[in-house]
Write a protein that binds this DNA or RNA. Structure first.
Lengths: 195, 195
DNA sequence: TTTTCATTTGAAAGGCTGTTCAGTTACATG
DNA sequence: CATGTAACTGAACAGCCTTTCAAATGAAAA
């Protein structure tokens, strides 16, 4: 009954990734079985192994792809100007990039503990790189005397937690649109570090 | 071989809760089996069912107990003074209460999706009550003209995310002690809403 | 000492897990 | 039209899962 029509690997492959991402975001890595993913894709469980060597790698690939997308997009954003302008740019970038990707954000934050140690180390480094981009802005601002931050590392973690938390409760079609939220968060972030 | 010495229910019961909390915090609810919990407690899996009707209830009881502790402790803290003083009090309360309870915080934030819907609703309400305590402070501050917050609900969520994020990366014996971190966070929070 | 009973064991039921692989299908190429 | 092969099935393996329960245990009560 296999191979109903046409060459399918370029259709099934992405569908496996999409379905796995959605199910893992909703129920968690450990709670989702390969058979469930396969059923939603519309194949038998064995067919998944044409697209991933194992379940662990499937998770890791999802998380790595997301973090790479983040880092690439941040680099492409190419934030310019004085530290307050760059801080504004970072805040807006984070919100615009992450809000439409709630499944990726969820998985990337909740499933770290389900990664094999070597995979965890890779993702931790990528996350650290993202954090450092923000910390560099804060450090420059402190050096220029425009930010008052007793500890740039802690301020970095606090701001990122604030921004990431947004992804956990924001729902499209809620009371406020993305633009309004963007303004409010820019204000909160800017305030928290101003002199 | 059962019942090695004395009556054990008052010893085994708490040990089941403690062990379950620790294992679930580390590996996640779905990834921890009743057999693993039992093995760490030092009994067979069947014995756990003297202390919980099922695995789901074991998780729910852990989470509800934690949220009830939070709400009770907050009520006991009895924050007084003008809005900035109460905001300071809330920040310090949150940090002092949550930092020594990282396993509870982890479980309460990561395992919400593994709750049965009726249990989820109960916890969501308790969490909402905690958030409202902060929002009331912000609203009073806005009314008194000492806080500049365009949207108290969003500011509430942002501040709580910032504070909760702390529990995710803080490690005892790190670069900064709890007191130093408390000061820094009080400053960040106070700044973010000041006029 | 005998009885009671809270506590635990050990086995079982019924089902799900990730992964492998020989075999089948249906398309693309020669 | 014949052949090769990418894509998939369906079954199997070995082991784990939660939950139940009759039976065993050993301390406390009578």
């Amino acid at each position: 009954m296999a191979r109903k029509q046409g060459s399918h690997s370029d259709i099934t492959g992405p569908r496996v990734q999409d379905t796995a991402l959605r199910l893992i975001a909703r129920h968690g890595y450990a709670a989702v079985s390969m058979r469930q993913i396969a059923a939603e894709v519309g194949v038998q469980a064995g067919a998944l192994y044409n697209y991933t060597p194992d379940k662990q790698t499937l998770l890791f690939d999802l998380m790595r792809a997301h973090m790479q997308d983040v880092l690439d997009a941040l680099a492409a954003a190419d934030l310019q100007g004085d530290p307050p302008a760059r801080l504004d740019g970072f805040t807006r970038f984070h919100i615009r990039f992450h809000l439409p990707r709630s499944d990726q954000v969820f998985v990337s934050y909740m499933e770290l503990r389900n990664l094999a140690p070597e995979n965890f180390a890779i993702l931790e480094k990528m996350r650290r790189d993202y954090e450092t981009a923000l910390e560099d802005i804060l450090r420059d601002g402190v050096a220029a005397g425009v930010f008052a931050v007793p500890d740039t590392r802690i301020a970095t973690m606090a701001i990122i937690a604030m921004l990431t938390g947004l992804s956990h409760w924001y729902r499209e079609g809620g009371r406020l649109g993305m633009d309004a939220i963007e303004e409010i968060y820019c204000n909160l972030v800017q305030n928290s570090v101003r002199r």
